Simulated assay, not measured.
Amino acid sequence: MFKVYATTPESMGPCGIAAHAARAEAMGFDGLHVPDAIHDGLLLAALALQATRRLRVGTSVLVAFPRSPMTVAVAAWDLQQLSGGRFELGLGTQIKQNIEQRYSARWDSPVPQLREYVQSLRAIFDSFQHGTPLRFEGEHYRFTRLQPFFNPGPIAHPDIPLLCGAVGPAMTRMVGRIADGMITHPTNTPPEYLRTVCLPRLRDGLERAGRDPAALRLILGPLVATGVDEQAVAQQWEQQRRLLGFLYSTPAYWPSLELFGWQARGAELQALTREGRWQDLPAVVTDEMLSAFVPRGSYAEIAEVLRARYAGLADSITFPMPQDTAQDTQAAAAIARLRA
């Protein structure tokens, strides 16, 4: 049985998110992931939570470093109270070029920095809930002052799940050591990669911290090509080819290519972006690569495809919502089969 999270298009803004979330809830999804890319992830989460009654809503993933842990803690606390305990805080580092050049923020040592980010959030939450004097002093973050006037006080559901996105070995082990869960990047979801690379690193982190493996959730975020019929599936297949071409132009995502012996494809994609030839990226992504990274099948087939591919590897998975609401009934049947 999987918990199934709906995805949200990165282009969706605050005007559409409430209806999107209500629709996901009506279709039987367990949760909804909202992005933090073109629009603000915390704002989208607030609107999605306000529009629903049962659905869990998480950020997937909030770009952490441009935001102070204190401002994120206050927002997360408010969202958890607003929703009656349905908010999940997913955090990620993004890449150095974006942090420094897009956000004009500091990129230092991303693994220790994100570790301290999570630890400082927990210290702040403890102060909010129990009035514990705030004293977190690390290499990257230091919080030693929280006057009673600024403390929002206890809430009914203070245990906000803290999940992290991770790609590299050190980050994945760090997630195993301290986080409540990991959200996989789309490039890290081939079953072979999960079994031989990702899960051993998570287990290593868990063992080093003396944690029970049951304490950690793994949410898979595969790219999926699905639809009402083969024509719709084929269209989605080509969309995912374009997206994979873009993603694999970034060297940070090449380890999964290397597992299959396709590292030269990554270098070729990067060279094309440096020449400004973005339109040529999809041609580099072969059908063999797509088959490894993108499960495909109609709504009648896709639940069984995903079960066969990921059984025993994770407890949660993301699934795309149809663009056409007329397809919601067929997609909802696939979701029900995934959850069964």
Score class of each variant (00 low, 15 high):
220 L>P: 02
220 L>H: 01
221 G>H: 13
222 P>C: 06
222 P>D: 07
223 L>K: 05
223 L>Y: 11
223 L>N: 07
223 L>A: 08
223 L>Q: 11
223 L>C: 08
225 A>K: 04
225 A>C: 12
225 A>D: 08
225 A>M: 10
226 T>F: 06
228 V>L: 12
228 V>Y: 03
228 V>E: 12
228 V>C: 10
229 D>M: 08
230 E>P: 00
230 E>Y: 03
230 E>R: 14
230 E>G: 11
231 Q>V: 09
231 Q>F: 07
232 A>S: 10
232 A>M: 02
233 V>S: 08
235 Q>A: 13
235 Q>Y: 09
237 W>M: 00
239 Q>P: 01
241 R>Y: 03
242 R>H: 11
243 L>V: 06
244 L>K: 01
246 F>I: 06
246 F>Q: 00
247 L>V: 04
247 L>M: 12
249 S>Y: 03
250 T>M: 13
250 T>K: 06
251 P>Y: 05
252 A>G: 08
253 Y>N: 04
255 P>M: 07
255 P>F: 05
255 P>K: 06
256 S>N: 06
258 E>Q: 14
259 L>Q: 14
260 F>C: 09
260 F>M: 07
260 F>K: 07
262 W>I: 02
262 W>A: 05
264 A>I: 04
266 G>D: 06
266 G>F: 03
266 G>L: 04
267 A>P: 01
267 A>R: 15
268 E>S: 14
268 E>N: 11
269 L>D: 00
269 L>A: 06
269 L>R: 01
271 A>D: 11
271 A>W: 09
272 L>R: 12
272 L>Q: 07
272 L>Y: 05
272 L>T: 05
274 R>D: 11
275 E>M: 15
275 E>K: 15
276 G>D: 15
276 G>R: 14
276 G>W: 13
277 R>S: 15
277 R>G: 09
278 W>P: 00
278 W>I: 09
279 Q>H: 15
279 Q>Y: 14
279 Q>A: 15
279 Q>S: 13
280 D>I: 03
280 D>E: 15
280 D>L: 13
281 L>N: 03
281 L>G: 03
281 L>V: 07
281 L>Q: 08
282 P>K: 08
282 P>E: 09
284 V>T: 08
286 T>Q: 11
287 D>M: 08
288 E>F: 11
288 E>I: 13
